[in-house]
Design a binder for these strands. Structure first.
Lengths: 255, 255
DNA sequence: CGAAGTCTTGACTAGACTCAAGTTGGGTGG
DNA sequence: CCACCCAACTTGAGTCTAGTCAAGACTTCG
């Protein structure tokens, strides 16, 4: 498959192991020592390359699942046939934090593009976190951020109109992908999402998503073309969305 | 004030201490020993009776705040003047779990009726939870349930129409209040919420909430009158909402 | 080059919002 | 005890955002 070459996750930055994204991500929540970092590195098992639209099996209940490359989402199929995407998972993310409470994850997960995941047994992960409190804190902060993202989505769906909602989503993805080095020069990134999927995530019909994206394109704010997003006016985009990044970077009370 | 007598939170069940609601709630997530239960009981400080629409001060950052009686919500004021209520807090609930990650809570909290809260310093709470893993697990499960509720709200706002959304909300409150013994015979409970507030929680205008409630009343499904909810047809209500209570009762993998 | 999936466009519909004007009900003060 | 007041609830009319249906155009890939 030739497209792999254009897929910057696989190219990496000079061949960096995608697992390092997870470590550097956790590091941003709480600095990890070398011991716990290498402990994780040793414990992780990498999946084969997963096709787009592969559902992640529910055997994840006893495993911590990480997205290494590609893109994934959590979703629910409704009785009326609608599909609600409740969250987007980007490289470096832990799919679900239910393992912290010893619970089964609710909902389903699937890749939206070629992806690779890593798995660590929940038991080893928790043992490591128990031993190294820095890992525990990093994990709890990551979980808190995941909650904050869900919270912010409630606000989007509840009280933003289509343009604001789409703009907010694009801002959020920009910030989240930027942290893991997946925004390239010229403010371009790949969401690996179709307009229909964006609609399912934002509670909008495909047609309305399309028209909304056209407005943003016409106004020279952002150009979403075949899942490749180019932000042409970041400031204007933030204004339109009423975006405040603080929910992505949890404030820690000064100790 | 004569109304206090009609307010079943204050009457209690034979004068039970409302703090016991918190303990019994945590108990349902994970059985607590007597030591940690009485440790919490000793550490909690009770607020005076709070008026409706009292904003909980942000000094909650170093404290775990519990709702003992009444009702409260988390909300965000938008730039455009709209108010989005992102969560409802019922007696026995912990307001916010950010303290687990050592973070400041995001968002604002206020009571929606006469209420009493309890506070425990985050330090003591965490120390107790560190010492007694049952308390830690109960707390993590409570946090997971709070996440699940937020998740379910995303689904409601994203892909349920007004009737389903309102019905789902009423189901959820029924289940949550039932757990803490606040649903009385005849399937009646007090939400302590106006129709305008319900609208702000569900992303609907006040007028549309009103009309939706009228439909439910006319169909003899549920009667919402001045914040007092009487469910006349629980089965039909669940059907309308497509309600599945499993997100409120986290499945624990059989160990 | 053809097929499938995605994106785009137009026309129409419907669910929900806004504005504006009542009505009801509980609480207060004369 | 009644009149008044305010907040909450209700109703009607008109508008608009977003959804649906259906057809056509563009991409990508085999």
């Amino acid at each position: 498959m030739i497209t792999i070459a254009t897929d910057d996750q696989f190219a990496g930055r000079g061949g960096t192991d995608p697992f390092e994204r997870v470590v550097s991500r956790l590091n941003k929540f709480e600095p990890l020592g070398v011991v716990e970092a290498s402990g994780l590195r040793r414990a992780v098992r990498r999946s084969a390359l997963l096709q787009p639209y592969t559902e992640l099996m529910r055997d994840t209940s006893r495993e911590v699942t990480l997205l290494l490359t590609g893109m994934a989402c959590q979703f629910r199929l409704m009785d009326n046939g609608r599909r609600q995407i409740t969250g987007i998972i980007v490289p470096g993310d832990i799919f679900d934090f239910a393992f912290l409470a010893g619970n089964e994850p609710l909902g389903h997960f699937m890749t939206t593009t070629n992806s690779q995941v890593g798995r660590i047994s929940a038991r080893s992960y928790l043992a490591l976190a128990e031993e190294h409190q820095s890992l525990m804190r990093a994990t709890l902060r990551a979980a808190a951020t995941a909650s904050a993202i869900a919270h912010e989505r409630v606000i989007s769906l509840g009280s933003r109109v289509a343009v604001e909602r789409v703009a907010h989503f694009i801002c959020e993805m920009w910030h989240r992908l930027d942290v893991v080095g997946l925004v390239s020069a010229g403010n371009t990134y790949d969401v690996h999402l179709t307009q229909a999927e964006l609609g399912d995530a934002l509670g909008l019909s495909t047609v309305h998503v399309n028209r909304t994206l056209q407005v943003l394109r016409r106004e020279m704010v952002v150009n979403w073309k075949q899942g490749r997003v180019t932000i042409e006016n970041l400031l204007r985009l933030h204004e339109l969305a009423g975006f405040d990044a603080c929910y992505l970077n949890p404030a820690m009370p000064s100790d």
